[in-house]
Each structure stands twice: as structure tokens, then as C-alpha cells.
């Protein structure tokens, strides 16, 4: 579900320092809002800002480990796979993300 990387362009969307640790920012893209997460170990993840359960804005959830808890009904989403933690079933579309130094780049669909 990563999309076709060949047709994507890597676009810088933020610097690492723009996102608080265990926090997130929202990026507006042509295909909808993407939530950009920074975890405790400074890993960065990008997922649609849309919980598979009822569409809650994941960007506003609490980040813990490599997970985010949706602010609406506490579904826990694995940031690395986009999968909802069992027993909930659902998947969030991920966007490829790359860190170059402190530059955060997303592979945005054209």
C-alpha cells in the first residue's frame, strides 16, 4: 500500500525539529491530510490522518513506542505497518518517508 514509488516525487515537508518528540504534524497533500509522527527514538512515520475505525485524526493522538492511539475511540495503530493493534482490524495507508539529516521527505503522489 505504499503507492507506486516510481511515480512519486520526494518532497521535503518539514524539519525534524518542527515535530515535538512523541508528537506529530499534519501535512496537506493532494490525496488528503497525512499525519507525520516523531517517536521517542526520533523515528519518523507518515500515515493518512484518518483512523480506519471512524476516521479520527490520528495526528492528534498520543504517541507511544511505535504506536499512536486514536483520539476518538482509542484504537491503537502501529506506525510502522499502519495496522490496527489486535483485536481491532483495519489498516491505514502509509506514505513513504525519508530522513536526510534533519530534513523530512515524503514520497507524495503526483
Amino acid at each position: 500500500m505504499d503507492g507506486n514509488i516510481l511515480s512519486n516525487a520526494w518532497v521535503e515537508v518539514a524539519r525534524l525539529g518542527d515535530i515535538p518528540r512523541l508528537g506529530s504534524r499534519v501535512v496537506a497533500t493532494a490525496t488528503g491530510d497525512v499525519a507525520l509522527f516523531r517517536t521517542g527514538d526520533d523515528s519518523v512515520f507518515a500515515l493518512d490522518d484518518h483512523c480506519p475505525h471512524k476516521g479520527g485524526p490520528l495526528s492528534q493522538g498520543i504517541v507511544h513506542g511505535h504506536n499512536v492511539t486514536c483520539p476518538l475511540h482509542n484504537w491503537v495503530i502501529d506506525l510502522s505497518t499502519g495496522e490496527a493493534q489486535a483485536p481491532d482490524i483495519g489498516c491505514v495507508r502509509r506514505t513513504p518517508v525519508r530522513l536526510e539529516g534533519d530534513r523530512i521527505l515524503l514520497a507524495l503522489r503526483a
Binding site: 512523541l22 479520527g56 492528534q60 498520543i62 483520539p71
Partner: peptide, 19 residues
């Protein structure tokens, strides 16, 4: 620690079902 606050307290407003 803002990141340990539930969304409402972090954003000083009540989140609704549509975000």
C-alpha cells in the same frame, strides 16, 4: 508534558466526532 495530554487538553478544545 503536552505530549502526555489527551488531545482536548493539548489543543484546549473538545474534539468532535468529525475531527
Amino acid at each position: 508534558d503536552a505530549q502526555s495530554r489527551f488531545v482536548n487538553e493539548r489543543n484546549h478544545a473538545n474534539i468532535q466526532k468529525d475531527g
